[in-house]
C-alpha cells in the first residue's frame, strides 16, 4: 500500500478519484448536512471540473523528467510486460465496454423536462399604471410611513396577508403554504435574506400590484401563479401588506439612498 502511494501514477489516480467524490457528492449532499446551503453540481459542470483536474495532474506529472518516467511505468507495464498479460486482456475488454456504456447514456431516450432559465428578480420598470393611473416607481417610498398609525396599518396588512397570501406563501412567510407545492415557480420565501432585504418597497409594490402577468419576458410571466393584486386590493392595502411583510420577518427594506439599482439579479 505504502509503495503504491509513492508511485506517481496511483497518486494521480487518487487525486482524480477524490476530486470526483468532492464534486459529485460532497458539495451537493454533505454540505447541507452541516447546514451550509448548497445544491448538487450539474453533470456538465462536473465534466468541466474533472477535465481541469485531469489536465492539472498530467501537467504536474510531466513537469519533471524523472517523475514523468515513473508515472508512465505502470501504464507501460500494463501494455507490454509479459507478466501483465491477464491484466492487459481484462483492460482491453473493460475499457471499450465502459466507453460503450457512456455512449449509450448519451443516445438513450431521455424524459427530462427542457431546461428553462428564469430571472427571479427582473429589473422593474420606471413607471406602472395602477388601476389606470400612472405611478412612478423610481424613488417611490411607502406613503404609510408618514400617514396614520403604524400599529393599525400592520393589523390591516396582517389580515390581508393571512386571507390572501397564506395559501401559497405560508403562515410562516416561508413560501411553503398549503398550495405551494402545486406551483412552479415556487412561491417566494420572505424569510430568505436574499429576498426582502435586497428589495425596495417600491419593487415589492410592483410585484404585488402586477403579479405574474406583469412580469417581463425573462420572468416567464406565463408560469407564475402570483395574482395581479391590483384587481383585488387597493393601493393602501398593498402598502399595508408590505409593512407587515417587513415587520413580521424583521427585515428592513432596501432604500433609495443605497447606491445601485435593485433587481436584475439573474439565477
Amino acid at each position: 500500500m505504502k509503495r503504491l502511494l509513492k508511485q506517481p501514477f496511483w497518486q494521480g489516480a487518487i487525486v482524480v478519484a477524490i476530486a470526483y467524490v468532492v464534486f459529485k457528492y460532497l458539495i451537493g449532499y454533505a454540505l447541507p448536512i452541516i447546514g451550509v446551503s448548497s445544491a448538487p453540481v450539474p453533470s456538465s459542470v462536473i465534466l468541466q471540473y474533472m477535465l481541469t483536474v485531469f489536465v492539472g495532474v498530467l501537467l504536474y506529472m510531466s513537469a519533471e523528467e524523472g517523475r514523468w518516467g515513473t508515472f508512465q511505468k505502470p501504464i507501460k507495464e500494463a501494455m507490454v510486460s509479459r507478466d501483465q498479460k491477464n491484466l492487459r486482456g481484462v483492460l482491453m475488454v473493460v475499457i471499450p465496454i465502459m466507453v460503450g456504456w457512456l455512449a449509450y447514456q448519451n443516445v438513450k431516450p431521455s424524459f427530462a423536462a427542457p431546461a428553462t432559465l428564469r430571472s427571479i428578480h427582473p429589473a422593474p420598470p420606471n413607471e406602472i399604471t395602477f388601476r389606470g393611473l400612472p405611478i412612478q416607481l423610481t424613488g417611490l417610498e411607502n406613503p404609510l410611513h408618514e400617514n396614520g398609525s403604524l400599529e393599525e396599518h400592520l393589523q390591516v396588512g396582517k389580515a390581508i396577508y393571512v386571507k390572501n397570501c397564506v395559501p401559497c406563501h405560508g403562515d410562516l412567510l416561508d413560501g411553503a403554504g398549503h398550495f405551494a407545492q402545486v406551483f412552479n415557480p415556487i412561491p417566494a420565501d420572505f424569510t430568505n435574506s436574499g429576498t426582502l432585504p435586497m428589495l425596495t418597497e417600491s419593487f415589492v409594490f410592483w410585484r404585488i400590484a402586477k403579479g405574474g402577468p406583469g412580469l417581463p419576458q425573462e420572468g416567464t410571466p406565463w408560469d407564475s401563479a402570483m395574482p395581479a393584486w391590483e384587481n383585488i386590493l387597493d393601493e393602501n392595502e398593498i402598502w399595508s401588506v408590505i409593512l407587515f411583510l417587513y415587520d413580521q420577518t424583521g427585515f428592513s427594506p432596501r432604500t433609495w439612498h443605497e447606491e445601485g439599482e435593485e433587481g436584475g439579479e439573474e439565477h
Binding site: M79, M92, I95, N106, V107
Partner: peptide, 26 residues
C-alpha cells in the same frame, strides 16, 4: 437504431485504438 449502433461503434473504435496502441508500444 442509434441507441444500439452508437455504443457498438464506440466499443469497436476504442477496442481497435487500444490494440494499435499496445502493438506499437510492444
Amino acid at each position: 437504431s442509434t441507441v444500439v449502433v452508437a455504443p457498438l461503434i464506440a466499443i469497436l473504435l476504442t477496442g481497435a485504438l487500444g490494440l494499435v496502441l499496445v502493438r506499437r508500444a510492444q
